[in-house]
Simulated scan of single mutants.
Amino acid sequence: MDVHVRDLRYFVAVAEELSFTRAARERLFISQPALSKQIRQLESSLRVKLFERDKRTVVLTPAGHDLLPRARALVEEWDNTRRALVLAAAGPEPALRVGFQTRIGRGLIPSVTERMAELLPGWRLQFRQVPWNDPTAGLRDGEVDVAVAWLPVPDSGELSWRVVANEDRWVALPRRHRLAAHAEVAFAELADEPFIALPADAGPLRDFWLALDHRSRPARVVAEAATSDEVFEAVGSGLGVVLVSAGNAEANPLDDVVYRPVTGLSPSSLAVVWRTGDQRPAVRVFVEACASCLCRAPAAGA
């Protein structure tokens, strides 16, 4: 059976971290059992044991040591190949691919487009919506060049970012919800509500929009949604509630959903994100244009 590049990527993460837990949570944003299963399948396909592991330690076997530099090279070559193919498919007109997971709105894109036309004539923006299963909004696999994304994003050193807006968290409620008549809602009143969650692969971003750091007990998750359209469909049908940014509440008016400010929560941060080390002028112009348009918060980065 042929080995998938994804499995090699998983192997490299575990080999570099020497921890299934850290690799799963901090590098790959998948569950530890899912990662362990993929590594076992890789070992089965290769018919070698790659790790010696017990409850406390993980070490590479001789076969694992031999595979590591080869796996790194294969993953890097595939990433470079994929980026080259995407650029070739774009044709002769230079384009910057922008990833997003929720509606960007906020007047950002017209301002950025105008600024890029001024500084980089001939360039255009291509927008790609990426499901929340990918916490890098398309950057990890080279699907996009930059992204406008909510923090947190993976903090492994592979990505850099700049905060362009801080917004309060609101709640999206079914229109007939018992709290819909309130002008604002204390988070304590939402603690036991059924929540629509991002996929488990979203990692810390899922935790943030469930406000786990403000809870004394686990969230009551009744469904998962991979896109914003799925989220609002679930809320509108009465299945549950979800936290959203103030700007996204304004950008998504719906007949069967109401939005209310939530007290007792820290704000959310919207950032422009790029691959660390990508110094192309188009990337720098996009970042600076986003910052000058929306920046209401200090710069931050990995």
Rank of each mutant, 00 (worst) to 15 (best):
R220V: 11
S31V: 03
G301R: 10
E184D: 13
S237E: 12
A183T: 14
A34E: 09
P298S: 14
A234K: 12
V144Q: 02
R206T: 05
D141H: 13
P199C: 01
D207G: 01
L151M: 09
K37M: 15
G301Y: 02
G277F: 06
E189H: 07
F127G: 02
P152F: 01
P33S: 10
G301H: 10
H214K: 10
V262P: 02
T57K: 11
F286S: 11
L159I: 00
V164Y: 03
F11G: 07
L254S: 14
V14F: 03
V144H: 01
Y259V: 07
V59P: 00
K55H: 14
L108Q: 10
P135I: 06
V171I: 15
E288P: 00
H65G: 09
W132R: 02
A223G: 04
G105M: 04
E143M: 13
V185E: 08
V262E: 05
L68T: 11
L205Q: 11
R25Y: 11
L35F: 03
W123R: 02
E93L: 05
W170C: 05
F208E: 14
G236M: 07
G157N: 12
R56M: 08
L120A: 04
Q32D: 09
G107F: 01
V244P: 01
D278F: 08
C295D: 14
P135T: 05
N133S: 13
A15T: 12
A73K: 14
G301E: 12
L28F: 04
Q279A: 15
Y259E: 04
V86C: 06
N80C: 13
G64Y: 10
Y10V: 05
T57S: 15
S268E: 14
R9N: 11
A13G: 08
L8N: 00
V75I: 02
A200I: 13
D7L: 10
D278Y: 06
R97E: 09
S36H: 12
L87A: 15
N248I: 10
P110V: 08
S245F: 05
R9G: 12
S269N: 12
R40Y: 14
R6P: 00
R260A: 11
R27K: 15
L67R: 01
L159Q: 01
A165M: 08
L50C: 11
G277P: 07
V231H: 04
G142I: 13
A302R: 09
R217V: 14
A200C: 03
V273M: 10
L85I: 14
G142N: 06
L35C: 07
T113I: 13
A191H: 03
S228R: 05
E288Y: 00
L108D: 10
A202I: 05
I196E: 03
P135Q: 04
T21A: 13
E26T: 06
P94G: 03
F232I: 05
F208T: 09
L243R: 01
Q32G: 02
K37L: 15
S266H: 08
A90H: 05
A219I: 01
R169H: 13
V262D: 05
R260H: 08
